[in-house]
């Protein structure tokens, strides 16, 4: 039974990975950009995955419990702004700033989770609402929240180990850890149970509300990590960092492309990261081909639909 659950999910990931690689390699060869296959080129490609990857890993948790989180973009902006303000260029403030940011993300996750799990509010509306509230407060307060992160902190985003950026290692390390949580722990089993069959989970004695709450907290914390990474990358966070990156909708898109069901209960981290890899390869390939920004948007729209349709079409039930 368990193997049956994992295998189709794994195959979605493998197929996506393969397609993405083919797209990237073919474009690089066709445009004569052989330098893309150097270590620098490959790590550059992987680096494009980090921010969206972190958000999407978190988003996978909420979607697995049949919820959704539209507030991640605001959380990203919020942590990035808070981190740059609190550090103000001082390396001694790195630890307090990181703690403050994670605390902030945790708080947003708790609020989202509470509204969805215990307030009975549709997750789309609840997280849209908290996102709007945060976005407004951030924009209004931004004039007071200037500053930039400490140079040492930027090392997180620009430094590397044996030529591989720290941030890429962190993404895959965290991805592995979270895949372990989902597939090998009680929490993971409960997440799948709550998403797949909430009534059954309740009857089995699982306190579904708390599982949903936990998923939201994990999601917000990952958005917070993405915000911290971006703060290190861009030096000074702005209130529209997350919104301009469309991290909310893109994280949902890659999660679903990766085979996680919006209705919950089925999916996983490997597929999501493969979806993120698809987006990164497309990004890099569009650049090599010199496709203009508007056409890129058109292509991306169709690719999202097709990528989801390819495995959704096999489903027998109805979707809405």
């Amino acid at each position: 039974m368990k193997m049956g659950k994992i295998r189709p999910q794994f195959s979605v990931a493998a197929v996506l990975l393969l397609i993405s690689l083919v797209i990237f390699v073919v474009t690089a060869v066709a445009t004569g950009e052989m330098a893309q296959f150097s270590l620098q080129g490959i790590t550059g490609l992987l680096q494009r995955m980090v921010a969206l990857g972190l958000v999407a890993v978190g988003q996978t948790f909420v979607i697995l419990v049949a919820s959704i989180d539209l507030s991640v973009a605001a959380v990203i902006s919020g942590t990035a702004v808070l981190a740059s303000w609190m550090m103000g260029g001082d390396p001694a403030m790195i630890v307090p700033a990181v703690l403050l940011c994670l605390g902030f993300a945790l708080a947003v996750g708790l609020v989202n989770g509470a509204l969805v799990a215990f307030g009975g509010i549709n997750p789309l509306i609840a997280t849209l609402g908290t996102g709007l509230i945060l976005q407004g407060v951030l924009s209004a307060g931004y004039g007071l929240l200037g500053g930039s992160v400490a140079p040492a902190f930027q090392h997180l985003a620009y430094g590397s180990l044996f030529g591989i950026p720290w941030s890429v290692l962190a993404l895959f390390g965290l991805g592995l850890a979270m895949a372990f949580v989902l597939n090998r722990t009680v929490l993971g089993a409960r997440i799948f149970a709550v998403g797949g069959n909430p009534e059954g989970a309740r009857l089995a004695g699982i306190r579904t509300g708390w599982v949903i709450l936990t998923a939201h907290v994990i999601c917000s914390l990952f958005a917070g990590l993405a915000g911290l990474y971006l703060a290190a990358r861009v030096q000074a966070g702005t209130p529209w960092l997350g919104r301009d990156g469309i991290y909310d909708l893109e994280s949902i898109a890659v999660t679903v492309i990766g085979g996680t069901l919006l209705a919950g209960g089925k999916g996983g981290i490997a597929g999501t990261l493969a979806g993120v890899f698809l987006f990164a390869s497309l990004d890099a390939s569009f650049n090599m081909l010199g496709i203009d920004a508007f056409l890129k948007q058109v292509l991306r729209g169709f690719i999202i639909i097709v990528a989801v349709a390819v495995h959704a079409i096999r489903g027998r039930g109805h979707v809405a």
Partner: peptide, 25 residues
């Protein structure tokens, strides 16, 4: 003339510049 468009995203523009430099053209 090689033009890459960052679509208003800081993170993407940073990666774009790194890729252009790494590309060596």
């Amino acid at each position: 003339l090689i033009v890459v468009d960052a679509e208003g995203k800081d993170e993407k523009q940073i990666a774009d510049i790194e890729a252009l430099v790494a590309g060596g053209k």
